[in-house]
Computed example of a mutant assay.
Amino acid sequence: MSTRRGSWADDEKSVSYIEDLSLRGRIAHFTWTWFTLTMSTGGISNLLHAQPHTFTGLTTIGKIIFIAFIVMLVFNFTMITTRFVQNPGSLKSSLTHPTESLFFPCMWLSLAVLLMNIQAFGVPSSGPWLVTALRVLFWIYVACTLIVAIGHYHALFTGVTHVSIHSMTPSWVLPVFPVMLSGSIASSIASSQPYEERLPIIVAGVSCQGLGFLISLIMMALFLGRLMVDGLPAPKLRPGMFMAVGPPSFTALALIGMSNSIPQGYGYFGEHPMAMDVLQALALFFSIFLWSFALFFFGIALVACVEGYEELYWGLVCWAFVFPNTGFAIATINIGNQLNSEGIKWVGSIMTILLVAVWLINLGMQVRAIYNRTMLWPGKDEDRDELRQKKV
């Protein structure tokens, strides 16, 4: 056994460096946080599909990233299942750990992104069976994520996974994020559904999106209060501040998408033909309102990360640089499409280029972290015991 030091946080420098740790020992530290990788990769493929400015091969690139996303998702499920099978009791431990448990919803978020990508890349090349399958999966997803959100917050409220308000980060929004993304799924799949099925999906999507966004508003108020009282989080945690960009961004893109999928002349909209135009206009202007809200949190997170860059090192939380901002970029593109503004569309395209670059950098840094044993290693991951003892 030997000890190795690197440019990491002080609370991790004392961890022993075990040269002969087995593969099984490394898998034991495979956490729910790994699903931030699939969230981000699926978000990039979805973002490429939404591009207003295309070129030959862009669709192919998007499909390749989508396939890579599926491979990563299967890998994540295989590895975390292996961890739980090889280490009895680790599933319960992961769901009650005050830090790791907050990332359990990332698995559900990855499934939401999967459904949106299937709509984008699968439905145009498949028969009506896939449209039906997506509809069934949507309703299952809504039911499951609503139960998960209620159960997860109940665990937080009752102290099963105790957390302190002084350690509050935007990750507290994650338990309700999956049910909120039901609205984003609805905005994606509704346009391909039959009229008689489309309206219930849109109503459910608006309801879930509203639930998630309102809960996120409460959490963001707590987060701002925490910043005012206790200051910025530690530099290594500051990338997580970008999570606050997600709720307003995904709400904006969901509202525009659902308003554009309204079944014209059917049901309520057959009896009130003017309602469709009114709702589309409201969705657009409320989305612009939300876009500036997202921009504010983006700026706060960016300045905080730049200020602490000397102490910033790569961890899975750095995937927050990507996933929330893919929603921000898609919302920008959707607003540009609605206003028919080339300037706004180009802003969305530039954001896409930057996000793809950050995604590639993160991929390289994650491979490097695994090789350097600063991930999947005792005391290095979100399951470490000192986080449980500190109850942060």
Rank of each mutant, 00 (worst) to 15 (best):
F250P: 00
T251S: 15
Y17S: 13
Q389H: 08
A112R: 00
A186K: 00
V113T: 14
G343I: 12
T326Q: 11
S2W: 03
T60I: 08
L21E: 14
L95E: 09
T33N: 06
I215V: 15
F323K: 01
S167Y: 09
G299A: 12
T3C: 09
Q209W: 07
L360N: 07
A9Q: 12
A331E: 07
R26C: 06
T169Q: 11
L232D: 15
S45N: 03
T59S: 08
H152Y: 10
S40N: 03
I67E: 02
V71I: 14
R4G: 03
G299C: 13
L360P: 11
Q86K: 10
V245L: 08
A275I: 09
R198Q: 15
G315A: 05
W314S: 01
I202G: 01
S164C: 03
T41R: 02
A204V: 07
V245K: 03
Q389M: 10
K92I: 04
N372A: 11
C305D: 11
E342M: 06
L211P: 04
I218C: 11
E19R: 13
M375L: 13
V163C: 05
R135G: 07
S261V: 03
F84H: 14
K390E: 14
F103L: 08
G210V: 04
H152T: 13
P263V: 08
S192M: 07
A68S: 09
T59W: 03
P235N: 11
I150Y: 10
C208R: 06
P105Y: 05
A320H: 03
T352E: 13
Y309G: 00
I70L: 14
P170D: 06
L363C: 15
I18P: 00
G240Y: 05
G343A: 13
N337F: 05
F75M: 09
T132W: 05
F66N: 02
L111P: 00
L360D: 10
A281H: 10
V322W: 04
S216K: 00
C106P: 01
S184G: 15
W319N: 09
A149L: 10
H272P: 02
A254Y: 01
V142L: 11
P233W: 07
R83I: 04
E100P: 00
M219A: 12
V85W: 11
Y268G: 00
R26Q: 14
L21Y: 03
V173G: 04
P247D: 06
V85L: 14
P105K: 01
I150L: 15
F104Y: 10
C208N: 11
P105Q: 02
P178Y: 11
E196W: 10
M365V: 01
M274K: 13
T99G: 01
G151P: 01
P247A: 02
E311W: 00
M241K: 01
S188G: 07
P235A: 15
A283M: 08
I18Q: 13
L115R: 07
L217M: 15
F66L: 04
V356H: 09
C305I: 13
F75I: 12
H166N: 15
W172G: 03
G267V: 01
L111K: 02
S125M: 12
I370G: 04
L115V: 09
A143M: 10
K345H: 06
R5V: 13
H29I: 00
E342H: 11
Q51H: 10
T169Y: 03
N334H: 12
R373D: 04
F55K: 08
